[in-house]
Amino acid sequence: MSKSDSPIKLEGLSKARGKRWDHLELLERIDASGSISSAATAMGMSYKAAWQAVEAINNLSHEAVLIRQPGGSTGGGTCLTEYGRRMVATYRRLEQEWAAVPAALGRTMDDFDQYYTMSRRFDMQTSARNQFLGTVTAVKMGAVNAEIILDIGRGEELAAIITNDSAEHLALEVGSEAYALVKAQWIILAVGDDIKTSARNRLTGTVVRCQEGAVNAEVVIELPGGKTVASIITNESVKVLGLKEGVRASALIKASHIILAVAS
């Protein structure tokens, strides 16, 4: 990192510092207690808010930050991965060096550029419940629309259909980084392996949370590797599909229902 880069990057860090520091404390408390519930209680957060924060952190990271531990006599739990611990340690070092920036920062923080880039991902504000960071692996231009293939990591891909103008405006090309945003209401859930559908995308995993409301329910599916996808469906659909924790299910997403975004 060059000295000339530091003022710009530090300005961005300062603006987002408060929210990200809450994320760091949550991660630290989860790692110390092995429980999201205990960490949320200690911070005065709701269990749901803590889980949503955890899911967002994992989905916006190229590597898993937290992992679930199998249940047993103690009921299992959640802990940080080695990558997650390094990320937290990097930001805590940043706190300690804050008074000495920018000169000391470049000398003492080998991981700064990598984790600063990740920190900026938490600054994006959107109403879309599902946010995935990925790398463009293919761009196929048509007469009007373009098909963009996004590798979101851990063996999962998403295909999005956007206009050619949008693809050009976002400067999407193979190797570029982009976000896939999907509203929970746009995701169709299905069970069973013999499924025929016109939906271009299918993400299969295990139901880890199923919370019913007055009319609708939020169902969260954990994909292999730790990423999650949340869907809003009716309570009746939950009953018909037999959805509950531990059930294998698929999230079906039309390519036209995926919104792509890039960092400015």
Rank of each mutant, 00 (worst) to 15 (best):
238 V>E: 06
32 A>K: 01
165 D>T: 06
122 F>I: 14
130 N>C: 03
148 I>V: 13
184 A>T: 03
115 Y>G: 06
220 V>C: 00
229 V>M: 02
90 T>P: 02
45 M>V: 15
183 K>V: 04
130 N>L: 04
138 A>Q: 12
16 A>D: 08
193 D>F: 04
45 M>I: 11
263 A>Q: 10
92 R>D: 08
159 A>Q: 08
109 M>R: 01
74 T>R: 07
137 T>C: 09
15 K>S: 09
123 D>P: 01
91 Y>V: 09
159 A>P: 01
47 Y>P: 10
253 I>T: 05
257 H>K: 01
48 K>N: 09
218 E>Y: 07
91 Y>D: 12
217 A>D: 06
105 L>T: 05
142 G>C: 15
209 R>G: 00
241 L>D: 05
238 V>L: 05
256 S>A: 12
231 S>C: 11
117 T>K: 07
148 I>A: 03
101 V>Y: 01
197 T>Q: 12
42 A>F: 00
249 A>T: 01
214 A>M: 13
111 D>S: 08
233 I>F: 02
255 A>T: 10
211 Q>V: 10
229 V>P: 00
67 I>N: 03
210 C>E: 03
79 C>Q: 12
104 A>G: 05
74 T>I: 15
107 R>E: 13
98 W>E: 06
101 V>P: 01
263 A>D: 14
207 V>R: 01
70 P>A: 10
161 I>Q: 05
191 V>H: 04
21 W>P: 11
53 A>R: 01
71 G>W: 06
149 I>H: 04
207 V>D: 00
249 A>P: 07
8 I>M: 04
162 I>H: 03
264 S>D: 13
59 N>W: 03
136 V>Y: 06
122 F>E: 12
54 V>K: 00
200 R>D: 10
245 E>I: 03
93 R>K: 02
163 T>I: 14
59 N>Y: 02
182 V>Q: 00
87 M>P: 01
104 A>K: 05
258 I>N: 02
213 G>D: 04
96 Q>N: 10
135 T>M: 13
36 I>H: 00
100 A>N: 09
64 A>F: 05
68 R>P: 05
63 E>H: 14
127 S>G: 10
41 T>H: 09
70 P>Q: 14
170 L>H: 04
230 A>E: 04
248 R>T: 09
140 K>M: 15
263 A>P: 07
236 E>M: 10
2 S>L: 15
207 V>M: 07
98 W>F: 13
138 A>R: 10
58 N>E: 07
66 L>E: 02
95 E>R: 03
255 A>W: 08
121 R>G: 02
180 A>Q: 07
245 E>L: 08
24 L>I: 11
104 A>C: 07
53 A>Q: 07
22 D>G: 11
45 M>C: 13
241 L>C: 04
196 K>R: 09
12 G>D: 11
237 S>P: 09
58 N>H: 01
89 A>L: 14
62 H>E: 14
132 F>M: 04
17 R>E: 11
34 G>H: 07
61 S>N: 01
216 N>R: 02
187 I>W: 00
209 R>A: 03
163 T>Y: 14
216 N>P: 09
27 L>I: 13
